[in-house]
Amino acid sequence: MVDVIVLIKQMPDLEQVKIDSNTREPIVKNVPKTVEILSEHAVEEAVRLKEKYKGKVTAILLGNEQSSAIMKKAFAIGADEGIIIDGYEEHNPANTARVLASKIKEIKHDLVILGNQSADSITGLIPGMLSALLNEPLLGNAGKIEVTGTNVKVTRILEEDNIEIEVPMPSIVSISQEINEPRLPPVMQIMAAGRKPIKTEKIAPVISKGVTLVSNSAPRSERKKLVFEDMDKGIPEVVKVLKEGMK
């Protein structure tokens, strides 16, 4: 038996984010929210562990009412319970970790699984902060998770070699994308997921301390947008342009 909490992050669909040409700020208004890709792998891994060792998978998501579609995706993959924490809209990893940790403490668990970093903000801070707040060991960048009795054994994928570590549960495991290939849920599970209740818990906004978002803008790229259609003439032209650019 292994009870898993899996943390899901939602983020704006990066393919659909446009950059304001004047301010260079990303326009995220009206951009549909999507599940952060590593979160999907995390849910998949949690469900695989459940299928292998039995137990329960609880998914937690910071979002709002519109996030239910993302939670249903987790249900379709096989999550048993889903909690949406509604009301937290900050860009402060420390507070994010606090909100998550306070929720996780309420739930009996053996493992907390989450992505090692998210594709939009790429801070990679949450796993470590959770580890500190919950006082549970962190196994980072996992490519494989096994449970042996009351211990969890993780293969960490590093640049040149893999390391196996074993720690007693409960513990926190952050995963890398290589860990699995998220499944395509069968239709019956998708339909059943649609009918499953989602717990939504409102929280009061947390006051941010210490971190201020100063600016969020895309670097200016000055593309010359030159198109060379004729292959033969084009190459010398490209060389010429490149030489000029180096000066």
């Binding site: 290939e181 499944r183 395509l184 849920p185 069968p186 239709v187 019956m188």
Partner: peptide, 10 residues
């Protein structure tokens, strides 16, 4: 394969 088992080429 796809609808019952979620199986399809990657």
């Amino acid at each position: 394969l796809v609808l019952n088992q979620g199986k399809a080429p990657k």
